[in-house]
Design a protein around this nucleic acid. Sequence first.
DNA 1: TCAGGTGTGGCACAGTGTGTCATATGTGCC
DNA 2: GGCACATATGACACACTGTGCCACACCTGA
Lengths: 177, 177
Amino acid sequence: MLRQAWLLFADQGFDATTVDEVAAAAGMSRRTFFRYFSGKDELVLARLVEAGEQIAEALAARPEDETPWQALRRAFDSVLEAQEAQPDRARTVSRMLRDEASARASMEERRRVWLETLVPLVQQRLPRRKDAAIAAEALASAAIACLDTAQAAWTEGGADRMAAALDAAMGAVGPLG
Amino acid sequence: MLRQAWLLFADQGFDATTVDEVAAAAGMSRRTFFRYFSGKDELVLARLVEAGEQIAEALAARPEDETPWQALRRAFDSVLEAQEAQPDRARTVSRMLRDEASARASMEERRRVWLETLVPLVQQRLPRRKDAAIAAEALASAAIACLDTAQAAWTEGGADRMAAALDAAMGAVGPLG
DNA sequence: TCAGGTGTGGCACAGTGTGTCATATGTGCC
DNA sequence: GGCACATATGACACACTGTGCCACACCTGA
């Protein structure tokens, strides 16, 4: 949906692309665009949310005997593969999210949306204790932080295999087994 | 600086307060306000950056035999105290950052600024290895994620001692010794 | 007194996001 | 077919943000 918009973003940058251009490229009026999307941000967020759903699916499918941290690490694999399958495109998007101020806001939003679906799945893997809710949220958001770290390292040359970067990141924080 | 602005934010909400109002309250013109600040966001960010500097100072002062994770946990103590000293004000700010869309953008920005100062300090505590840079960034950003989790839990009733919430969060992710 | 720097405000402009209203474009029913 | 009704779209106006540009006031030293 609105693949046209992403072409514009990649070409001119996110900030430099106006809503008018996006709307025109999609063949609708400005007003109509705002009726379907809350703004340019939502186009970015939509993509990120999709990835979050992939992760949630994968996490739900991990064997029960894995620790939450191991399961989260494995759940990220599908996203890693998708990124490494189209490295140029993935790096372009990644740099956009890092460099363009207005796109950055979507990152915090993504964190919340991802947590909403991931936290319950993590909590299922924890013993029912008083602090289980906090523990689950801490684990999930720490894992996301590691994913972002790996993503950044991979985007800027340092690491050529993203999986290795993620192992390094998550392995430094908690035992991967 | 611009304490007036924070009164307006607390009173009307962040989004609902216009730059014109802030400028008027500070006794300067709109144009002059934009000469000193990049926007309302910067007023929020300034506060968050200050807290980050406190954390960095505290981290640098931790004994060398602590693990990075333990040291980070202890480095957060000063922020915790500051928050618990003025719980109402802290909760108001916390809710604003959570609920108001435009303030949310500052959270991602804060993450970056904090990492810039914290990562080198964490890396000093790690053995020099190939992945030390990634490990340091992963540890620091995971710790920040835990702090946010604890903050959220404390803001919404659940936990009345923020330190306990942070122990639960960080303890669930890595050993605190 | 004059020249040059500095701080400030006014104005105009492009851009975002929203409310309101008018105009298509169906869709079902008689 | 013709009519009534709902829905989708577009046009316009508006409040607000952020920036460039210019004018004015004020200070300071020669």
